[in-house]
Design a protein around this nucleic acid. Structure first.
Lengths: 346, 346
DNA sequence: TCGCCCGATGGAAGCGCTTCCAATAGCGCT
DNA sequence: AGCGCTATTGGAAGCGCTTCCATCGGGCGA
C-alpha cells in the first residue's frame, strides 16, 4: 500500500555522489560545485524526494518545532479571534521558514498549567515557544522554558517578561489613550471603563492610557467608573448595568476588548437604549465581531495576524542566530482607532 | 545551557535492565515482570525521562503526526469559529491519545491546493489527515492521501467522499428541516433561503431539508426564493436586499450558516426593520456570533468541538487498528434547534 | 619548482529508538 | 528424568539523516 519513500541514499546513488554531498545540497551548504548541485537537485526532483524530518532532527539535534500556547477556552470565551489570528500568522510564517508549530490550548485555570507547557516543549523537543497573553507575562514560565534551552518570544506589550525574551506587541497604553481622546473630542466627560482581569498587562495598559487621556483634560477618578471583566461577551452583558446605573451616569463606555463591548452593546439594546445616540461604546482589538454587531463598533485595530507572524520570525532568527541582538528586542506594531458607528457627539 | 536530556540508555543503566526492556515498558509491551516494570518506571521518574519522539518515529516508522486542513481564510471570513472549534476538539483528543496535530490553512482559491495538502503529509510524514469542508468532499484529494498510505477522516455529512474514508458529521438535512418546521409552526409561509456555495455538501443538504419541510406543507418553488452566498457576514449583507425586495415578500429568511444570518440581521437593521417583528431570521451552526448579535439568533446547534474530537479518535483507531470496521464508518452526532430571539409568529 | 592552503568530496560514526531474533530459565508432561 | 513449550530478557541491526574528520587535487607565493 504505502510505497516506501526514497531516502537520501537513493538520491546519492542516482546522482552519483556521496550521501554527505546530497545533505550539503539539501541544506544549502557551501563547497559544492554548481554542476554537482544541479545534478543532485535533478535526482531529488526525479525521485520526488522529501527529507525525513524525524531523521533530520535525530541526527542534527534540531527539531524545527515551535510551540504556540494560548489560554482562552472557546467554550467560555466565544470569540477566540485573537488566538486564532495569532496562530494563523504563526502558521504562515512557519510555512515560509520550514518550521512546524505545535498548538496547545491550556486554559488559564488549569492547576498545573506551567507544567503542561513545559511538558510539551520537553516531550516534543520544541526549540521555540510563543506565549500569548496571559502566559506572556508569566516570568516563571518564561525562565523555566529558557532554562531548558528553549527560545521564547512573547506577544505582549512588554512588562515583567520584558528583558527576558523577545516580544512583539502594540502600544496598548497609546491605544487606550487614542480611543479615549476620540471620545473626549466628541464631547464626552463622564466615562465608564470595563477593564480586563487583574494582572492582564495589555488590558492594564489600556486602562492607563484611558486615565492619562482623562487627566490631560483635567478629569480624574471622580469622572469615571471602572469595572473588571474577563474579556467575554457575557462579562460585558453583566457589567453594563453596573456602569449604566452608576450615579455618575457615564455617556461613554470604553471596553478593554471587543467582546465585552459587544456584550455592553447587547445589554444596552436590551434596555432599549439607542446606540450611539444614548450612549457611546468603544472596544479594542478590531476583532471580526466589531464589524458584525449592530451598529458596528468603534474600536482600536491591532494587526494580530502580523503579530503572530513576527513572533515566529523573531524566534527563528534567534534559533538560527541570524543577526540578532544580544539583548531581547521588543517589536512594536502599529495600532489605529477605527471609528465606526457606536460613537457620536454627546 | 541546555542540559542534555536523558536517553533510554540512561534509564536502562539506572534500572539495571537492557534497553529493549525499557522500550517494552514504555510501550506497554507484554512479557515484562511487574517488578521489573516498576523498577523501570521508577528510573524514568527519577531521571525525568521523556521519550524522544523523533527517534521513536525514525525507528518505529510511525510519526504519530496528524494533519488538520481547513480552508477558511480568517482574513475574509471573519468568524472562523467552525474551524477553530474543530481544531480545538482535535487538539484535545490528540493530547489524550499521544498524537500531535499539524494544522494547515489552505485557502480554497489556492491554485495548487491539493498539492499543498499532499506535500504536508509527505514532507512531515503524517499518518492521518482530517479534512474539514469543503476538502471533505474532495474525492481526488482523499484518494491521493489514501494512496500515500495516509488514513483519512472527513468532517462531512458524507457524500461523494463517503465510502472512501471515515466521516463524522451531523445530519444537515434534518437540521435544515427542523429549523424550517419551527418557522412553519410559527405561521410563516413565504421564505427566503441563503444557501452555501455550489458544491458545498453540508450547505446543500440544509437546503434540501428546507425544501422538504416546505413540501410537507404543500409549499413549493413559488413560495420561496433562494440565493447562494459564500458563508461570510458580508454575503449576508449583500444578499439580504435581493431577498427582502423580492416580489414574494418573504417573512422569514433561513440562512445556511450563522455568519450570513448575522449579515442579514445587520442589513435588516440598516433598513430600519424590527427583528423579529418585521422579519424572522435563522442561522445554522450556533457559532458564538449567534449569541452575540442583537437580537440573539435562532439557529441550529451542532457540536463542532466534539466533531473534531471524534475525528481524531476515529483516525487513531484506524491507525492502531483497534476494533475498526472493514468499511468506512459514518458517525452522526446530534443537532438541535436553538430558539432565541430572531424568530416569532408572523 | 616545491610546499602549503583551500575548495570539494567522501567515509565513518553516531543521534535515540524499535524491531527481529537468539538465549535463558522455569514449567508441565510423558 | 528428559522433552518441548512459554514467559522473560538481551544482543544486534538499522531507521535516515548530520557531523566530524580524512582525502585529494590544484592554485598560489617564495
Amino acid at each position: 500500500m504505502t510505497t516506501k519513500r526514497p531516502t537520501i541514499d537513493d538520491v546519492a546513488r542516482l546522482s552519483g555522489v556521496a550521501r554527505v554531498t546530497v545533505s550539503r545540497v539539501l541544506n544549502g551548504g557551501p563547497n559544492v560545485r554548481d554542476e554537482v548541485r544541479a545534478r543532485v537537485m535533478q535526482a531529488v526532483e526525479a525521485l520526488d524526494y522529501k527529507v525525513n524530518p524525524q531523521a533530520r532532527s535525530l541526527a542534527g539535534g534540531a527539531s524545527r518545532l515551535l510551540a504556540f500556547v494560548f489560554a482562552s477556552d472557546p467554550e467560555n470565551e466565544p470569540n477566540s479571534y485573537y488566538e486564532s489570528a495569532l496562530e494563523l500568522g504563526a502558521l504562515r510564517a512557519c510555512l515560509a521558514l520550514g518550521y512546524q508549530v505545535l498548538v496547545q490550548n491550556v486554559p488559564q485555570q488549569t492547576p498545573d498549567r506551567e507544567k503542561r507547557v513545559l511538558d510539551l516543549i520537553q516531550t516534543q523537543r520544541c526549540e521555540g515557544l510563543i506565549l500569548s497573553p496571559p502566559y506572556s507575562d508569566d516570568v516563571a514560565l518564561i525562565e523555566a522554558a529558557l532554562a531548558q534551552g528553549c527560545k521564547v518570544v512573547t506577544v505582549s506589550p512588554g512588562g515583567p517578561g520584558r528583558g527576558k525574551a523577545d516580544a512583539v506587541g502594540v502600544d496598548d497604553e497609546a491605544g487606550g489613550y487614542d480611543v479615549t481622546r476620540e471620545l473626549l473630542r466628541l464631547g464626552h466627560r463622564r466615562f465608564g471603563f470595563i477593564a480586563g482581569l487583574e494582572g492582564h498587562l495589555s488590558a492594564d495598559r489600556r486602562l492607563r492610557g484611558f486615565h492619562r487621556a482623562l487627566a490631560e483634560q483635567g478629569l480624574g477618578e471622580g469622572d469615571c467608573v471602572v469595572r473588571r471583566g474577563d474579556f467575554t461577551f457575557r462579562a460585558g452583558v453583566q457589567l453594563a448595568p453596573q456602569l449604566l446605573d452608576h450615579p455618575l451616569k457615564p455617556t461613554a463606555l470604553v471596553c478593554a476588548n471587543d467582546d465585552m463591548a459587544a456584550g455592553v452593546l447587547s445589554a444596552a439594546h436590551a434596555r432599549g437604549l439607542s446606540i450611539p445616540r444614548d450612549l457611546s461604546i468603544t472596544g479594542f482589538d478590531d476583532a471580526p465581531v466589531a464589524a458584525i454587531v449592530w451598529p458596528p463598533l468603534t474600536t482600536v485595530h491591532q494587526p494580530v495576524k502580523v503579530l503572530g507572524q513576527r513572533a515566529v520570525e523573531l524566534l527563528v532568527a534567534r534559533l538560527t542566530g541570524a543577526n540578532v541582538s544580544a539583548t531581547p528586542v521588543f517589536e512594536e506594531l502599529e495600532h489605529a482607532v477605527v471609528s465606526r458607528q457606536t460613537t457620536s457627539v454627546v
